[in-house]
């Protein structure tokens, strides 16, 4: 058995979050999420948390495990033996109940970077051809599962909630770097704003926390260079020669 210390907050019942301890079986193939499912099924049906796929794709089971933002389906109990394992909601987000956080801030910011292909000119009738090298340019950034671990890890987002944030900027870059996309100029006002890439101070915790190897910090620094060069061009070149 291993002890799981789970943060509970039941609106209307608790004035502040409290910690509740549960003993769950320590099995080598059990993730933290399996422990929570055991608690929910066997010990306490009132525990609330989000999960879906159990395989690191859906991005819904992000939690703070022993102080670090983690996907609870990809974090194994045996790695924390003999315990206890502290399970808290994702930091930097308002808590709705227990381990469930309010993600509406991220959901509002995400569409602002227009994370979809914006194509000028005609769309080819068949496939949109792309070389492997062109795909390598953005593929890493396309692995984002919107789990928000990067927002939870980001100290800038903690201080400045208006910061567009790691995942949203990395997703903007994912489309900017796509050879099929012509939307960089449309995304620029949001990405290159004070609350966009320029708010990032390159702490790098987002890339450490990312469970999919997206490297949002790297994406943001690359974008800063792009934005800085465009700003210099705006400053130095006549109107017609910009872009």
């Amino acid at each position: 058995m291993i002890k799981m210390e789970v943060t509970r907050f039941r609106p209307g019942e608790d004035d502040a979050p409290i910690v509740q301890s549960y003993e769950v079986p320590l099995r080598k193939e059990w993730a933290v999420l399996d422990g929570l499912n055991y608690i929910k099924d066997q010990l306490d049906g009132t525990l609330s948390y989000r999960w879906s796929c159990r395989m690191g794709i859906c991005g819904s089971c992000g939690m703070t495990v022993n102080g670090k933002p983690q996907l609870s389906c990809a974090t194994f109990l045996t790695d924390y033996a003999p315990g206890p394992v502290r399970v808290e909601p994702l930091r930097n987000f308002p808590v709705i109940r227990d381990l469930v956080v309010d993600i509406s801030d991220f959901m509002t910011k995400l569409p602002k970077v227009k994370p979809w292909l914006i194509h000028d000119g005609e769309v080819p009738e068949d496939e949109f051809l792309q070389t492997p090298r062109e795909m390598d340019e953005y593929k890493k950034y396309s692995m984002c599962i919107n789990c928000m671990l990067c927002y939870s890890a980001c100290p800038v987002y903690a201080l400045e909630p208006e910061f567009l944030g790691p995942a949203a900027i990395a997703l903007g870059q994912r489309y900017n770097l796509d050879s099929r996309d012509d939307g960089a100029l449309e995304r620029r006002d949001v990405l290159a704003s004070a609350a966009g890439a320029w708010a990032c101070t390159f702490v790098g915790e987002c890339s450490t926390a990312c469970p999919k190897g997206v490297d949002p910090a790297g994406a943001i620094q690359r974008y800063k260079l792009t934005a800085a060069v465009s700003a210099l061009k705006d400053f130095l070149l006549p109107r017609g020669a910009r872009r």
Binding site: A192, S193, A194, G196, W198, K224, A228, A231, L232
Partner: peptide
């Protein structure tokens, strides 16, 4: 941020 903000310039100096 306005297009005339000096942030890109100071960041280029920082980066360089």
């Amino acid at each position: 941020m306005s297009r005339r903000s000096p942030e890109p310039l100071v960041w280029l100096l920082f980066s360089g």
